[in-house]
Design a protein around this nucleic acid. Structure first.
Lengths: 239, 239
DNA sequence: GACGAAACATGATATATATCATTAAAAAAC
DNA sequence: GTTTTTTAATGATATATATCATGTTTCGTC
């Protein structure tokens, strides 16, 4: 995932080859409109795209790369609330309600991200009814995800949550060519931040899942050996 | 809060005296439109308005009374995700995305609730840009609430969460005429379902807050004696 | 390719909170 | 107004998971 620096690499929205995203379904004209004054940026792995609490001034659309969205607790502990990948937009919520960013967005790998002007997007929203329906559906989906995460975290054991997290990672990022290795690289600390537990407990739990033959750990790579088994654990209380 | 049974008691949306609600800001004409085929129902305390997982077939608008929205975990433990009161609408999310209800709505006290037809509402949404912006903002607000709740529950102690819950109840339902008693009646089990803990722990924690002079417990009534103190314990989170 | 810094791993111990058990009080039902 | 059911209260005990401590491996960098 190497990328050259320079605007030349970033196509306009009309030329963008991402297909699954709220801005990908716009009409040709509207794609022109938002492309018109579009900026774009590269972020290296680990860099922040925006910070929770900061003022929102544009809409981010991921052209390439993966991003994690997290919130910080009082004590500085991080909770990953969502992931985003190519085609996904970031920061629209704060934009709509004119509030600070509700979460911090961090590049999980080198990313290329387009920046759509606040005015262009809000203008489009007023005229394009389909877009606003799409935004509503996006919000609904995120809300459903957040509520499910809440139930999972409050009512499931760590083992169930870790299993659930692995399933979620498979759903979000898919598998590599071998059709069994998760196509995403996370530290144990990040998995802990997903499952709302500690790094140590995550390491132990992953080792346990490995011992039980459900997964295989090859460095940071996680191979899913028994997906149904994981689902069974994630669903039922069994420790 | 006594109410006579019969449609005669329920005004049309134009005549409704609720002011704070997404349907309260509609134009006179649009209020007519949704009133046209509006149904209405009475629910006694404890009755369910709809169940999580069931198919959505209309939009509920609370005319009078309070409602709790909760989700059930695998093991049957309840998590209260939100409250709703006069003017608030319920079930719109499932309506928009044509999905089953994401939560169960239960009347916390005797309620009178209007039922707006799915078609009328969705039709309005297509023509009334202001309404869809309002829906977007409603969703944003709920999402922010859900995410904050997630952080609170995963990163705070039970004492902090209970304090937070009390603050949230004050914000949502306000105080009685004495300006210090929470204007809502909940069982200890329900408070436990808000704070994601057990009934026993809730009882003990409330007793502790009482011992420390922050609140006073008079039967089910909860008197807030030191609001700032509660905020300090809760850790200032605000949504 | 050596060095320092992350990340990973594992054991020992602590602790917040759940669970279980029982009784008391309040509310609802008859 | 008595019985039954629900809710509240309190103590004893169990346990999942955090925390602390320490060593090892991997990774990025000069």
């Amino acid at each position: 995932m190497i990328m050259k620096r320079g605007k030349i690499d970033i196509p306009t929205c009309g030329e963008c080859d991402n297909t699954e995203g709220i801005l990908c379904n716009l009409t040709v004209q509207n794609k022109e409109v938002i492309s018109e004054r579009k900026g774009n940026n590269f972020y290296k792995k680990g860099q922040a795209i925006f910070y929770e609490g900061n003022h929102a001034n544009g809409l981010f659309c991921i052209h390439d790369g993966r991003v994690k969205l997290s919130k910080l607790g009082e004590d500085g502990k991080e909770q990953i609330v969502r992931f985003a990948k190519a085609g996904d937009i970031l920061g629209y919520r704060s934009l709509l309600s004119d509030e600070p960013y509700h979460a911090t967005a961090t590049a999980m790998e080198d990313c290329s991200i387009c920046l759509v002007s606040k005015e262009k997007f809000n203008g489009l929203l007023e005229t394009d009814a389909k877009l606003s329906v799409n935004v509503i559906q996006l919000l609904s989906r995120d809300l459903r995800g957040a509520e499910q995460l809440l139930i999972d975290i409050t009512q499931k054991s760590v083992k169930e949550r870790i299993s659930e997290s692995l399933i979620m990672l498979k759903r979000t990022f898919g598998l590599q060519e071998d059709n069994k290795t998760l196509d995403v690289v996370l530290t144990r600390a990040e998995i802990a931040d997903m499952a709302a537990t500690t790094t140590e407990t995550t390491i132990r739990t992953l080792a346990q899942l490995s011992d039980e033959g459900l997964i295989e750990l090859i460095g940071k790579k996680i191979v899913i050996k028994d997906f149904e088994g994981l689902q069974r654990i994630a669903g039922f209380s069994s420790y």
